[in-house]
Amino acid sequence: MSILRVDNLTKSYQSGGQTLTVLHSVSFALEAGDTFSIVGPSGSGKTTLLGLCAGLDRATSGSVYLNGVQLDNLSEDQRAAVRNQYVGFIFQNFQLLPTLTALENVMVPMELSGLGRQNGRSIEQTARELLERVGLGKRGHHYPTQLSGGEQQRVSLARAFANRPKILFADEPTGNLDTDTSATVVDLLFELNREAGTTLVLVTHDLDLAARTQRVIRIKGGHATGDTNTIARLSD
């Protein structure tokens, strides 16, 4: 069974009395543990596709199956529960809650799921271990504003893996970072992904980054213009 299956996904908006279609009949399927990139120019529909795949928005037509669950028929709360159970997120702007410390930010997905413990360990213990893993074991009590961009993204990485998700969606994860920090964060992302066996869906402009995933889909003007599983063909 595919972990993510997208069938003829179309998304249209009403704008100024006109219908604007930003995604045209996109289809693909990912197996558990796959790494996958969505690339394309600005405004091509990459983020729209990612949002639909993650159940953050509803498609105009077509279907999304996440871990076998058809998202189109679910209510917003049911989709939130699916996200909490199967999905992890990484954003370009980190999206940490400014009122919570690094440790508390990592704990949020576990707390929202209502679990007191995870695999016999307390939520806090799990969160601390994750922070250790991303190299921020001693920064747990710091607030986001007290951390650098790279550190914030590492907290975000720890949070993304907190609920042991089956699939991870990363939207331009290095878009706001300098080259050196980007490299560290990307290495960590792939490492954690490999360790956890998570499926990774990456939206990026960065072709070098995309080249590190097993498959790439190219989006242009809302159309999937190519789905390739060889890195060599990507650079053609």
């Binding site: 953050l56 917003e76 939130a80 949020v108 929202l112």
Partner: peptide
């Protein structure tokens, strides 16, 4: 911003 982020992370409407 905050609420949407929480919803993205799986918070329910009730929460």
């Amino acid at each position: 911003k905050e609420s949407v982020l929480l919803r993205t992370l799986g918070a329910s409407r009730r929460q």
